[in-house]
Design a protein around this nucleic acid. Structure first.
Length: 872
RNA sequence: GGGGGCGUAGCUCAGUUGGUUAGAGCGUAUGCUUGACAUGCAUAAGGUCAUUGGUUCGACCCCAACCGUCCCCACCA
């Protein structure tokens, strides 16, 4: 006797148990079978700063769907999990937590601070891992990695040293983006721009030794303190003669030269630009070209330096006010103009960044970007959807050198050592370096690396690189990277150029891009709006399968999606539907094992469902191969609910209830086989419920997770019977429609007279009409004589229902006449198409044949209608 | 200033190389305790596929323009 399922679907009762079952049985590990092809995914490592949010839930659902599908499809699969130390984000959180205790980093010192950071990692890194498990993620936890673990750190040092020796990493004074709040440099990619209302202030700079002055416009009057020149365009007739002369810097009194430089544009403003080389990226370049001094006037926390006593210690905005006031009083301020200004802000804390001249480490990008662009152009790595390659090219082609040093403690320490005695610099993996020149101990650079520097190595550092490990040989390059479009520049592009540089090949063949998960109103989920939906709460309430279903359905690659109660409820309802269908099947099952019966034992509805299922296998598999996971899922949804539950189960019920017959055994086997196989197709999307059902059904093998993915086959294809069954279904539907229109109570059963193709419409169809079309009895006359009955006409049959009391003859005639007109219009339309020489000549034969078949069907229907009308 | 997405039923969205009379979920209406499921069953209403042209035997789909909307990139003093 078959097992049973509990009456209500309660995901809480089995999800955790099944996850443990899989884990205990090693189902997540690669099978290691060398005869199988490999399929590898590396997880985008979640930051240890927080907990799982909807973006992670989506990202990991998609990855798990792919890896589970490939695992069942005969691949040796590896999904490498892990977490990211997220240097600036984590450090900011720890510093904030310390502030609660009244502590600063400096109070603690580097060692103690790092101890705290590691404690943080244990706590929050562990939490996010358990949350990933809750989602059902089938990662191989024995491969779990952390971007700051020993292996990744070794990879980071190796890369740094190699790039340095190759001249691709250098240290230099450049203008960098400085965050005065985080007190560190950040890369260009970490700067967000936002529009702020501001002003152009027009200021006069008096000429030295003359009466006149030059007028400049600026959005940043406080940087005037750092001005070291005024630039005019050398071709500008207005100022040509002033080049080489001097201005007096207002308020400061310093003499600054007037230089000729292309940076100054003739048609912009007054044509004169103040040059602040230490605090503006463009001015920095002008300063280099013109050999100007770099005058620093702002400190690391964006206050005025002690060089300017009047303003020293003032915050940059305070100083702006004070300086403007003094300019006005001194008669230097000419005018004020309103302006919308794009201002760079720190992507972590939102503070307005301050461009500053600073000594930092950089990666030279152009030599790395070129092969990375070529690799994608050559199709070695493919973006899905394809359009995202434009983002990638755009960024890669315009990339500037990457500032990688950070004035933070939580991260990979830069493996550069300085000799204070002789000034030597050594870059080495050896942490106890002594100066090769003078033998004195060396001081390691205090800074750490941009967190993305280690993320860039993730696809191979996690597999053991720089060691030549077996994992690396077998599982690299990986196959699919699944990530959001917001991270293409930060991460995807850097992995590609890194992998090309060190591994000599691309890190993955496909990048599957997904969008953002938004709230029901389409807003971005954010802490400040308080509109975030916690995936864990959703799992508690609806189960992980429902969450996964809701995330995988109804969206296509690269597009944002909305998450709503409506959606999660629809998902839960579907799973509940499956649960109950499985329950029903099990209630009627007394076979010990499931085997697909020989074809000659199969009845019409069996062949119909198998044939439809065969199509679903192909459709779902094809959609997955195209990364259209939402399409694959909707095909399954339609099949399971509309075809399997609503039709097949209903059609086969009489046989399932008639125990002790061969037909009953055939029905049991078919229904169980289709259910079991459908669970396999659904398993990647809803792993828990499909496993629970599969294990309850008679089965062989340990887990559905490692069962074989169904294969479409000619043995399952019965096009003739599929079409025949469809005709019966059409007639049943037509009867229901007529009865509903006429408000016939369901309790009122009637005799049916069905005439049509005797191969289809014969006594074998009677149970279907009895159960599904309110029939008390069915006859299959060759022709209809009763002119007092309701007439229903399809293209394959005519049905008479003796409901004389409900008939209005005139209305019947009117209705049939209307249908006749419709059929005639259809015939006219199709005939016109089939008489079009262009169509016949150019359309594919299959299309033409299909149109001819339609015409024949329409003609048959018209004939049926006409003969019915003749009877009235 | 560049680049890209989106615009399809009241709402949220699908629509697989161009090939009937464009689909789903939710919502709405009507009727149902039908031997699993009311988290259900049956039936229905609801769309000039933003607009205008073009290509084609044939366009929701390809091309151009335009309107609306969202996003990304960018050093505009």
């Amino acid at each position: 006797m078959a097992k049973e399922l509990p009456k209500t679907y309660d995901p809480q009762s089995f999800e955790d148990r099944l996850y443990k079952f899989w884990n205990d049985n090693g189902c997540f590990k690669p099978c290691g079978d060398k005869t199988k092809p490999t399929y590898t995914i590396v997880i985008p490592p979640p930051n240890i700063t927080g907990q799982l949010h909807m973006g992670h839930a989506l990202d990991n659902t998609l990855q798990d769907i792919l890896i589970r599908w490939k695992r069942m499809s005969g691949y040796d699969t590896l999904w490498v999990p892990g977490t990211d130390h997220a240097s600036i984000a984590t450090e900011a959180k720890i510093v904030a937590a310390m502030r609660e205790e009244g502590l600063t980093k400096e109070d603690l010192g580097r060692e103690k601070f790092l101890e705290r950071a590691w404690d943080w990692k244990e706590k929050y890194g562990g939490r996010i891992v358990s949350q990933l498990k809750k989602m059902g993620s089938s990662c191989d936890w024995s491969h779990e990695r952390f971007t700051l673990d020993e292996g990744c750190s070794n990879a980071v040092r190796e890369v740094f040293v190699r790039l340095y020796n190759k001249g691709l990493i250098y240290r230099g004074e450049r203008i960098i983006n400085w965050c005065p709040h985080c007190r560190t440099s950040i890369s260009n990619a970490e700067v967000n721009y936002e529009t702020q209302k501001s002003h152009f202030w027009h200021i006069r700079y008096p000429l030295v030794g003359g009466e006149g002055y030059l007028e400049v416009a600026t959005t940043r009057p406080e940087t005037l303190l750092g001005d070291t020149a005024i630039a005019v365009n050398p071709a500008d007739e207005r100022y040509k003669d002033l080049i080489g002369k001097y201005c007096v810097l207002p308020l400061v009194g310093r003499r600054i030269p007037i230089v000729g430089d292309e940076h100054a544009q003739l048609d912009k403003g007054t044509g004169c630009v103040k040059i602040t080389p230490a605090h503006d990226p463009n001015d920095f370049l002008v300063g280099k070209r013109q050999h100007l001094p770099m005058e620093v006037c702002l400190t690391e926390d964006a206050k005025i330096t002690d060089n300017y006593p009047k303003y020293a210690g003032m915050d940059r905005y305070e100083a702006r006010k004070a300086i403007l006031k003094d300019l006005e009083e001194g008669g230097y301020l000419v005018s004020i103009e309103d302006l919308d200004h794009e201002v760079g802000t720190c992507y972590r804390c939102g503070t307005t960044i301050e461009p500053m001249i600073s000594l930092q480490w950089f990666v030279k990008m152009v030599p790395l970007a070129e092969p990375a662009i070529a690799a994608v152009k050559e199709g070695k790595t493919r973006f899905v959807p394809e359009r995202f390659d434009k983002n990638y090219y755009r960024w890669m082609e315009n990339t500037q050198d990457w500032c990688i040093s950070r004035q933070l403690w939580w991260g990979h320490r830069i493996p550069a050592f300085y000799c204070d005695a002789c000034g030597e610099t050594v870059v080495t993996k050896d942490s106890s370096a002594v100066c090769p020149k003078c033998g004195k101990p060396m001081r390691q650079d205090p800074d750490t690396l941009d967190t993305w520097f280690s993320s860039a190595l993730w696809p191979f550092s996690t597999l053991g690189w720089p060691e030549k490990t077996d994992d690396l040989k077998r599982y690299f390059p990986t196959n699919t990277l699944v990530t959001g479009y917001d991270i293409i520049t930060f991460w995807v592009s850097r992995m590609i150029f890194s992998s090309l540089e060190y591994m000599g090949e691309v890190p993955f063949d496909t990048v599957l891009i997904h969008g953002l998960v938004r709230d029901a109103q389409g807003r971005k989920m954010s802490k400040s709006l308080g509109n975030g939906i916690d995936p864990l709460e959703i799992i508690d309430k609806y189960g992980a399968d429902a969450l996964r279903f809701a995330l995988a359905t109804g969206n296509s690659p690269g597009n944002d999606m909305r998450f709503s109660d409506e959606k999660i409820e629809a998902a839960r309802n579907f799973i509940n539907k499956i649960w109950n269908a499985a329950r029903f099947v099990l209630m009627n099952l007394d076979i010990e094992e499931v085997a697909l019966p020989a074809a000659d034992k199969l009845e019409l509805e069996d062949r119909f469902i198998l044939s439809r299922f065969n199509t679903v296998i192909s459709d779902v598999t094809a959609a997955l191969e195209r990364y259209e996971l939402g399409v694959a899922l909707s095909k399954l949804y339609d099949f399971i609910w509309d075809v399997f539950c609503d039709w097949y189960i209903e059609l086969v019920k009489p046989r399932l209830f008639a125990k002790g017959t061969e037909s009953n055994l055939v029905a049991q086997n078919v229904i169980a086989w289709v259910l079991s196989s459908a669970m396999k197709l659904l398993h990647p999307f809803c792993p828990f419920v499909t496993e629970e059902i599969w294990q309850t059904l008679p089965h062989t093998g340990l887990s559905i997770m490692i069962s074989d993915w169904p294969k479409a086959s000619d043995a399952l294809s019965f096009p003739v019977e599929e079409a025949q069954m469809s005709r019966i279904i059409d007639v049943i539907t037509a009867i229901r429609v007529r009865r509903a229109e006429m408000n016939v109570q369901p309790a009122r059963k009637t005799h049916l007279f069905v005439s049509g193709d005797p191969a289809v419409f014969n006594e074998k169809a009677t149970p279907f009409f009895v159960r599904l079309a309110f029939a008390s009895a069915v006859d299959y006359p060759a022709a209809h004589e009763d002119d007092t009955a309701v007439r229903i006409v399809t293209d394959s049959a005519t049905v008479l229902i003796p409901l004389a009391d409900l008939i209005d003859r005139d209305k019947e005639i009117a209705r049939l006449t209307k249908e006749k007109d419709a059929a005639q219009n259809e015939i006219t339309r199709l005939s016109a198409k089939l008489n079009n020489a262009g169509f016949l000549a150019k359309a594919p034969a299959a299309v033409v044949d299909a149109e001819r078949a339609k015409l024949a069907a329409a003609q048959a229907k018209l004939d049926n209608i006409e003969s019915s009308l003749a009877k009235l």
